[in-house]
């Protein structure tokens, strides 16, 4: 699990989850369909994961499997894992999935995540090693955050290897400055 200050971990926990309230709650405005400021027992509300998780552990809500892990996604992953657009389902597909496993009843979710990552891993690395550096290839738009990190790590290792062989500039302007300074001249 990510650290307290981990930005990716925080954003991954913002993913929406459908939850059914087992207990009523007063004085909160999270159910858009309710007339008053309260949630009734049995009403279905879309909550961010961080809230759903804590409520679920206290048995206040039960959580449904999010749509990004639905049957259609599973079939697509079985057919051709490398071509599935996981980013549009959730940019934090794996992290979110791992967080969901303990609180949903679905026992196959963990295996789905594992098999999807394993079969896509090799493909991502191969493409990162062979693709040209200039144009961001189309595949990037299908990858989740985790896979993009992997892709970039692979590319930078190729770049570092080339630099080591050929030599090159050893100093660089600080990256915080961006490329603005050049255009100002």
């Amino acid at each position: 699990m990510g650290s307290y200050y981990d930005v990716d971990d925080i954003i991954a926990e913002e993913e929406p989850v459908s939850a059914v309230f087992q207990k009523p709650a007063n004085g909160v405005g999270i159910d858009p369909s309710a007339e008053k400021n309260c949630v009734d027992q049995g009403s279905k509300v879309e909550l961010p994961f961080w809230l759903a998780n804590e409520l679920c552990q206290r048995n206040a809500v039960s959580v449904l499997v999010p749509p990004c892990f639905d049957e259609k996604t599973r079939l697509e992953i079985q057919a051709d894992p490398a071509c599935v657009d996981l980013r549009s389902r959730s940019p934090y597909f794996y992290e979110f999935g791992c967080k969901m496993v303990p609180i949903v009843a679905d026992r196959t979710l963990g295996f789905l995540l594992f098999s999807a990552f394993r079969s896509r891993y090799k493909d991502v690395l191969t493409k990162a090693h062979t693709a040209s550096h200039v144009a961001a290839p189309k595949i990037l738009s299908r990858l989740t955050k985790e896979e993009v990190n992997l892709y970039e790590a692979a590319q930078s290792s190729v770049a570092a290897f080339k630099k080591w062989r050929i030599g090159g500039r050893r100093f660089h302007p600080a990256s915080v400055l961006g490329r603005k300074r050049r255009s100002e001249e």
């Binding site: 207990k23 709650a25 007063n26 004085g27 909160v28 309260c38 961080w50 809230l51 409520l55």
Partner: peptide
């Protein structure tokens, strides 16, 4: 119900 409301606020 009040408790769960307070819990949501706390979280």
């Amino acid at each position: 119900a009040d408790f769960y409301g307070a819990l949501i606020h706390h979280l």
